[in-house]
Amino acid sequence: MFGLVNAVLCAALLSLAGCNGTGPAPVPGPNPDAAEYSVTIQAPPPAAGIATGLQDHSGQAVTAACASCHSTKLPDTSTRRGEDLDQFHHGLQMAHGDRSCLSCHNADDYNSLRLADGTSVAFAESMQLCAQCHGPQFRDYKHGSHGGMTGYWDLTRGARTRNHCMSCHDPHAPAFPTLRPLPPPPDAVRHEENSHE
């Protein structure tokens, strides 16, 4: 009831205020037909290679292309854990459900990846691979509600840059990393109950 009265009073007041001018008038909004700026997805880190642990004369790490080994060696389809990898892939932490290496890596062509149906995809298209299992996340990503971005909400006025899945998720251990938060506001008070927990 009061809300109604309030609304009526507000309306009356606004109409009064209208006579006095209401500041800078609104300007025309975005034109739906206008040309749009692009949305750039940050390129995933270049894959297709592995660190050998060696350095060249200028101090750069030396990587070996996947095919250098995998073209001759047969893959062990049972490898599912990082610890089981004893050559080259030392220390690789595998924490991605119960996927095996070959769930994603293409045993026929290690320079590409492999979808569940066997289709090969380039490393640059890896998002398709993620999307096979993480449909909801991919859907959310497509609609801008998953994954960081910068730039313009109004694409008729400027471009936007978006994160790639791999900007935040390591494909072998995709859980988002734990972060140290920035300091709390100085006037925030820790509740006693919580501090006892």
Binding site: Y141, S145, H146, G147, G148, M149, T150, W153, R157
Partner: peptide
């Protein structure tokens, strides 16, 4: 935002938890 840009808090979000835009579009 009146310039078409995203708010600063949205750009700073590392996970993309924030969604901003024109509700009339």
């Amino acid at each position: 935002t009146r310039d078409g840009r995203m708010p600063a808090c949205l750009e700073a979000c590392p996970t993309g938890a924030r969604v901003f835009g024109n509700m009339l579009d």
